[in-house]
């Protein structure tokens, strides 16, 4: 069977039809020519004669281009048929893509609802995960030079006094004071100790978790004198811990 599609397409080229419309016309007319070719062959024509006769009918008097020019509007723009070549930049076809998407969603409202809900859930979940990750890992600590903060570990605990198997190395207070006062590598050091405090002044005890801290304000670059920072929370409540100028933490009012 000869190929008539390219013959039809060649004859339609001058009309500059929209590619999708042109593809439909080419398909339909090529089928007609296929049938005509088979008919002529069945009547006894040779393949060459049948092919030539079919093409003669296609070219008859320029009727095809003349007739189609009256009915078919020329494409104002060049939409991309499915599987066709893609020309132009992203913005060139953005409007067409949007129209195609809206038409597709309107034709399948059930699918549209599921798609929108899936997108909403996906975006919401990703936002929540990012906020958590940002708060825990990405966002800089609210100190003057967060890039200069280091976490100290004791690689060789042999012969040293303290507990170095926990998540953070633990020293006795005298050793901590020696390290703090005699180290020369850092501008300041900070240490803490988690513990419980009884806030009750009498009667039933009111235990909250809290910390003794030392050197945090110097490390944070907020000054060397007194200060205030939130250090512990208990459900929705917490405690503000205020430093006096001698660096001793004092439990202050709840907030």
């Amino acid at each position: 069977m000869p190929e008539f599609r390219s013959e039809v397409r060649t004859r339609l080229a001058s009309l500059k039809l929209a590619p999708t419309r042109e593809a439909a016309i080419v398909e339909e007319m090529a089928q007609h020519l296929d049938d005509r070719f088979e008919e002529l062959r069945a009547a006894g024509a040779s393949p060459h004669e049948a092919y030539a006769a079919a093409l003669d009918e296609l070219d008859q008097g320029g009727l095809l281009a003349k007739g189609l020019r009256q009915t078919e509007r020329q494409a104002r723009f060049d939409p991309v048929p499915p599987g066709g070549p893609w020309h132009g930049g992203f913005l060139t076809h953005l409007g067409q893509d949007c129209r195609y998407a809206v038409r597709g969603l309107r034709l399948s409202p059930g699918f549209a609802v599921v798609a929108v809900l899936s997108l909403a859930l996906g975006i919401g979940a990703n936002t929540a995960i990012f906020q958590l990750l940002n708060a825990v890992r990405l966002r800089n600590l609210p100190v003057r030079n967060p890039g200069e903060l280091f976490y100290l570990k004791v690689p060789n605990s042999h012969g040293r006094v303290g507990n170095f198997r926990a998540s953070f190395p633990m020293f006795t207070n005298p050793i901590w004071e020696q390290i703090r006062d005699h180290q020369q590598a850092f501008s300041a050091l900070a240490a803490w100790n988690s513990t419980s405090f009884n806030l009750a002044t009498g009667g039933r005890s009111h235990i909250v978790r809290g910390m003794y801290v030392n050197g945090f304000l110097q490390c944070a670059g907020t000054g060397s004198g007194g200060g205030e920072v939130v250090l512990c929370r208990r459900r929705q409540e917490g405690l503000r811990i205020t430093w006096s100028s001698d660096q001793l933490p004092v439990l202050a009012k709840p907030f």
């Binding site: 007319m29 007609h32 296609l58 009727l63 095809l64 007739g67």
Partner: peptide
């Protein structure tokens, strides 16, 4: 023939007198 039939079919379709469907 193919050159005279299809322009006519498309014209009738454009007028809304016939409707073509694959």
């Amino acid at each position: 023939n193919v050159a005279s039939l299809y322009p006519l079919l498309y014209r009738l379709e454009q007028r809304g007198w016939i409707q073509g469907r694959w």
